[in-house]
């Protein structure tokens, strides 16, 4: 990766903020992802903790334990000049039930898009998504790839409680609520999968860089998967 492709600045006294571009573009996101993977694989002593986002990577460390953090970071980032670190993509399939009970805002998304609700389901579950990063709350994946016509504004009055597993749309983003929280996204379905479980080997179902597809399931399959997951705990 050429040095000109990023800028490093202090973010307080124990974080460095690496910025890979001013615009949230696919190229910038790939740079963030490859830098994230590179540091993860080269930082053998686990001195750095990383928070990737759309255009930036926040690198946290103990300021008295890491000497010359900026230089160390540049050395790692420039150790693969082409930026071509091996990137594997997991494909995560997420079953989603788009039944009316789980989709209080399907109608409003449909009318906003000027298409019928079943067509929203078809397009939402037909698209290919990628996890730009996992952030905000444990296990919440920021997905890119929502078909443009499905974009819809946030609810004017957020709900006080959105059930875990709810699949929503806000602006040009789609995502899944990992735990029950208040929220203003338009809900169009629900997955029976657990997005986050601290006691699993892989606590977060989604990781940065993963490819994601939604598979439409009926209520019976939702209940069946749900029972299996609950029974395994």
């Amino acid at each position: 990766m050429p040095p000109s492709a990023y800028e490093i600045s202090w973010f307080g006294d124990r974080c460095l903020r690496v910025c890979f571009g001013e615009q949230n573009t696919p190229e910038t996101r790939v740079r963030v992802l490859s830098a994230f993977r590179l540091i993860e694989s080269e930082d053998f002593e686990k001195r750095f903790s990383l928070t990737p986002a759309y255009t930036t990577l926040l690198v946290r460390f103990h300021p008295l334990a890491v000497r010359e953090p900026e230089r160390t970071l540049r050395t790692i980032l420039e150790s693969h000049p082409s930026g071509a670190c091996e990137v594997e993509f997991n494909l995560i399939e997420i079953p989603v039930c788009y039944d009316a009970d789980f989709a209080p805002d399907l109608e409003s998304v449909a009318s906003h898009a000027g298409i019928a609700p079943p067509e929203v389901v078809r397009r939402h579950s037909g698209a290919a998504y990628q996890v730009a990063f996992v952030g905000f709350t444990p296990g919440f994946g920021y997905l890119t790839g929502l078909p443009a016509e499905l974009a819809a504004p946030r609810l004017p009055n957020p709900r006080t409680r959105v059930p875990a597993g709810s699949v929503g749309i806000a602006g040009d983003q789609t995502g899944i609520y990992p735990s029950a929280t208040p929220g203003g996204w338009r809900l169009i379905g629900r997955t029976p999968l657990r997005l986050f479980d601290a006691h699993r080997a892989n606590p977060s179902l989604l990781s940065i860089g993963d490819s994601v597809r939604f598979r439409a399931i009926d209520r019976a399959e939702f209940e069946s998967i749900h029972r299996t997951i609950e029974g395994s705990v």
């Binding site: 973010f11 307080g12 903020r17 255009t55 930036t56």
Partner: peptide
């Protein structure tokens, strides 16, 4: 554009009243 946060970061939302992030802060 959403970005990584850390405890102690002083954010200024649109109402101009700063928020100092605590240990259980949203990570971005």
């Amino acid at each position: 554009i959403s970005e990584g946060m850390t405890p102690g970061a002083i954010q200024v939302p649109e109402n101009g009243q700063p928020i100092v992030l605590g240990v259980d802060h949203p990570t971005t």
